[in-house]
Design a protein around this nucleic acid. Structure first.
Length: 568
RNA sequence: CGAGGUGUGGCUCAGCUUGGUAGAGCGCCUGCUUUGGGAGCAGGAUGUCGCACGUUCGAAUCGUGUCACCUCGACCA
């Protein structure tokens, strides 16, 4: 391809709307343009990389025995009503009506149509196991799209669905996909970790996420370098400290704590460390009030709490409700002397505490020297806090580390959640009807592309790994008016094209600086510069990711590039 | 949905406080010079100042409303 003819609108300045590096570079390098909030077009250069990522996914899915098909993006309401998700998705689902006022939606995820298709066509154990997938546009009307393509309203997802006759079969299908996912992300040159995840609204029994380590990631993961344990912070297990607190229990004491509502204010007022306090937060869980108690320096993990309570919605209780339960202003809640009989959920760490400070359920008063078991007992003791760096690993006991991650892939064991709802059954050898066991597996293609940039860039722009680069190489004649240079550049270009190398020739009448800057911004892995030394039969080969360049003959440069491409 | 912010040429932004002929840099077009790291000189084109209503002799500037976009939070396969 000739750069002079390319639709490649690069920008020198950082667009005002872009906050994170991948978003900025995707706009500057002419990869994509915004059409509306969270909705983007991919331009030629971007679409080439996009298709490369897609093809890596496709190849690994095929290799894993999954079969590709394509479902519609416009789907009738009925199948989502059958599974109950027409309501569950709420405003996040893009909805529309046809001319006869029938309800449709733009598919946010395709469990339902896949399940329906398999239900209609597979009726025997002989047809199982079966894994189908598609690479398809998905639509979610996110409350807040952000970071360019990281969280967008229209995106492309590879979604695969496995159907098995029993748990053992599902385990096998799941493991095959788990392995294929590693192959995909390895080929994309990503530094990622596989973490245990909360299966959330998707339902089901087991789930793992593929997290690309990055501080712009929206998820937090805990991992243990010693034993390999890794989990999303919504799932990471917090164990209580070993051994019993040996301190002597002091007599309970009520203290006057005027205007000290927060742990910080209390620390200052009482001169105690934050781990001597227990904070009591009142929640409204599906219209039922509960109190959750964690140590003063901890955070309540609302996902864990939601799962523990088995509720659909969880939110902080209103001030009115707090006053009704505690009989005191907000900020003085505690487990002792509550005005109403509410469920008391106690974090496992608090259940070992002695001589702690808690709210007295009386405005401007706290209790000192409260000991769990002596002064109060919880309805339930469980792990309801968020893990932090330095906490003990639930597997080996050593300290865990915490980092941010971009979720590029997510795999679930769904079990019979959808197959039961949609009557997707099969007959076994004995002629008995059973629901199929289902797994679902997603990769965000656009997000993967952005994640690759987040891990592969420098001050000059993107550094595409060879496996996903829009072009493998670019030939840059320094001066197009110099016949020797132009002739040599054209010859190199022709040879590379004939060898199957995806190559650009920058034949624009621009100064060399402009060409170098552009080639670096768009991240082409190899650059052959044809300059002054052309008359001596030499060119310069520069790798985008390296600092140094080689001076060699055109044929040697071509050979080197071809060898590198063969290696991917 | 709560809070904050921004809308001025293709891009980045100034002008608004204190109303009076719409600006800069980059990009774009023409010509000349230049050619190993986003060139120089000369000339040129490009704007319903997001939209609507209002105040005023007069509104990019003041007021009200509205839309879009961005950030933080809440929420979320």
């Amino acid at each position: 391809m000739r750069v002079s003819k390319m639709f490649m609108p690069t920008q020198r300045e950082i667009p005002a709307e872009a906050e994170i590096v991948s978003h900025q570079l995707m706009l500057r390098a002419g990869i994509m343009r915004k059409i509306a909030s969270g909705i983007y077009s991919f331009l030629p250069l971007g679409y080439r990389t996009f298709r490369k990522v897609e093809n890596i996914v496709r190849q690994e899915m095929d290799r894993a025995g999954a079969q590709e098909l394509i479902m519609p993006a416009v789907l009738p309401a009925e199948i989502y009503q059958e599974s109950g998700r027409w309501e569950v998705f709420g405003p996040e689902m893009f909805r529309l009506k046809d001319r006869n006022q029938r309800d449709f939606c733009l598919g946010p995820t395709h469990e339902e149509p896949f399940t329906e298709t398999v239900r209609n066509e597979i009726h025997s154990y002989r047809g199982l196991p079966l894994t189908l997938y598609q690479i398809q546009h998905k639509y979610r009307d996110e409350k807040r799209p952000r970071f360019g393509v990281m969280r967008s309203r229209e995106f492309v997802m590879k979604d695969a669905y496995s159907f098995d006759r029993d748990e053992a079969g599902l385990d096998i299908s799941y493991q095959i996909m788990a392995k294929a996912y590693c192959a995909v992300f390895d080929r994309c040159n990503l530094d990622y970790i596989v973490v245990d995840a909360d299966s959330g609204a998707m339902g089901g029994s087991g789930s793992q996420e593929y997290m690309v380590k990055s501080n712009v990631g929206e998820a937090t993961v805990a991992f243990c370098t010693a034993c390999g344990y890794a989990a999303n912070d919504e799932k990471a297990v917090c164990v209580s400290k070993d051994g019993i607190d040996e301190s002597i229990e002091m007599p309970l004491e009520k203290v006057h704590t005027p205007n000290s509502k927060t742990i910080e204010e209390l620390m200052g007022f009482l001169g105690l460390a934050p781990d001597m306090f227990a904070k009591s937060i009142i929640y409204l869980a599906d219209e039922k009030l509960v109190i959750a108690i964690v140590r003063g320096d901890r955070e309540i993990n609302e996902t864990k709490l939601t799962n523990l309570l088995g509720c659909k919605e969880l939110g902080l209780a209103s001030a009115t409700d707090v006053v009704a339960v505690t009989g005191a202003a907000v900020g003085f809640a505690g487990p002792l002397g509550l005005k109403a009989n509410v469920t008391l959920i106690v974090d496992n760490e608090v259940s070992l505490m002695k001589n702690m400070v808690v709210g007295a359920n009386e405005t401007d008063y706290h209790f000192k020297n409260v000991s769990y078991g002596r002064d109060f007992n919880g309805t339930t003791v469980s792990d309801i806090r968020t893990i932090v760096k330095g906490d003990p690993c639930p597997k080996c006991g050593l300290k865990v580390d915490v980092c941010r991650g971009i979720e590029v892939g997510h795999i679930f064991k769904l079990g019979t959640k959808y197959t039961k709802a949609l009557n997707c059954n099969f007959l076994d050898e004995e002629g008995k009807e059973n629901p199929m066991l289902m797994g679902c597996y997603g990769i965000g293609v656009n997000r993967t592309m952005a994640a690759i940039i987040e891990q592969n860039y420098d001050d000059n722009g993107i550094i595409w790994p060879l496996s996903v680069a829009p072009y493998h190489a670019v030939v840059v004649p320094v001066m197009i008016s110099d016949e020797t240079q132009m002739k040599m550049a054209e010859e190199i270009y022709a040879k590379l094209v004939n060898s199957g190398v995806e190559v650009l020739i920058d034949d624009r009448d621009e100064r060399p600086g402009v060409k170098f800057k552009d080639s670096e911004l768009i991240g082409i892995p190899f650059r052959i510069t044809v300059g002054r030394k052309a008359k001596d039969g030499l060119v310069e080969l520069k790798e985008r990711k390296g600092k140094d360049s080689l001076e060699l003959s055109p044929d040697d440069a071509i050979k080197l590039i071809i060898e590198e491409i063969k290696a991917i």
